[in-house]
């Protein structure tokens, strides 16, 4: 029992989305009432399990958790948001929208409700409305990098690459140490055909996270593309010498990643990488 609580606590701290783990560990806790022994943490666990249950599709479990929370905190905006999420899961999108609107009318700074509203619009198939709602939200809450990330995704769905790149730039400024965001930015740049810039970003990814395979592949693609073009006169572009050196490095590291594989895989992958 103690271990389950610790795992749930760690998941809350790291904000990872692992609904199957949470439900597997949390369901017995909720069903046999052991969760109450956790005192203050019990309510956090209820909330966590409720959201995970909705993810997994276990509506009954979610309902139990929400009811317990409602008993303890009647009228709380946080609980009402959970209720809205459950309605969303059941497909009652209009009703969920009403709940969020009511919460926001009472307290216009309620972040949870604002965010759910944006995602609701997306679920209802109104991407442009979702985008404008999210832009309005981010105008106020500039430092919410998850919001910027979500906006980038919304733009990418609409194939609006330059706007998505703008969002990723904001995310990078807010979280410069995270190589995943640099990676996403690099891939957007590549899709926009700014190959030179994309190459530099991919290099940054590998610099932040040594031997990052996706970054190395990105480097390979960029260098093979750039080497086919005539040398650019632009002084900010990578020189031919550097291009060749980086290309060699990427090839070498990529082949090294398949070192542990069987020999047939190794030879196939080596051949393919070298021909990239």
């Amino acid at each position: 029992m103690v271990n389950a609580a610790k795992v749930l606590q760690d998941l809350r701290a790291s904000a990872e989305r692992k609904p199957d783990v949470v439900v597997r560990l949390g369901k017995p806790l909720v069903e046999n009432g052991a969760v109450k022994k956790l005192d203050a943490d019990a309510w956090l666990v209820y909330e966590q399990v409720a959201i995970a249950a909705l993810d997994v599709g276990d509506d009954a479990l979610a309902q139990r958790c929400i009811q317990a929370l409602e008993q303890k905190f009647p009228g709380s905006a946080r609980v009402r948001r959970l209720h809205g999420m459950k309605l969303e899961a059941e497909g009652e999108l209009i009703q969920a929208g009403e709940i969020y609107k009511a919460i926001l009318q009472e307290d216009e700074t309620n972040i949870l409700a604002a965010k759910r509203q944006v995602m609701l619009l997306r679920a209802m198939g109104l991407p442009s409305d979702a985008i404008s709602a999210l832009v309005k939200y981010l105008d106020i809450n500039y430092t919410d990098f998850e919001g910027w990330l979500q906006l980038a995704d919304l733009y990418l769905e609409q194939l609006m690459y330059s706007q998505a790149a703008f969002c990723m730039e904001e995310v990078i400024m807010l979280q410069p140490q995270n190589h995943i965001f640099h990676l996403k930015y690099a891939e957007i740049l590549y899709s926009q055909q700014s190959i030179g810039l994309a190459l530099k970003q991919f290099c940054r990814v590998v610099e932040l996270c040594k031997d990052h395979v996706r970054g190395l592949y990105g480097i390979k693609l960029c260098t093979s593309h750039l080497l086919k073009l005539s040398p650019s006169k632009d002084s900010t572009a990578t020189s031919q010498e550097d291009l060749k050196a980086i290309d060699l490095l990427a090839t070498e590291r990529l082949i090294a990643t398949y070192n542990a594989a069987s020999s047939s895989t190794k030879s196939v992958s080596t051949k393919w990488i070298e021909n990239l």
């Binding site: 530099k200 290099c203 610099e207 040594k210 900010t236 550097d242 050196a245 490095l249």
Partner: peptide
């Protein structure tokens, strides 16, 4: 990122 390629090469010991 001006000299990121060079930094990367140095990191892997190529330069």
């Amino acid at each position: 990122l001006n000299n990121v390629e060079t930094r990367l090469l140095v990191k892997y010991g190529k330069l």
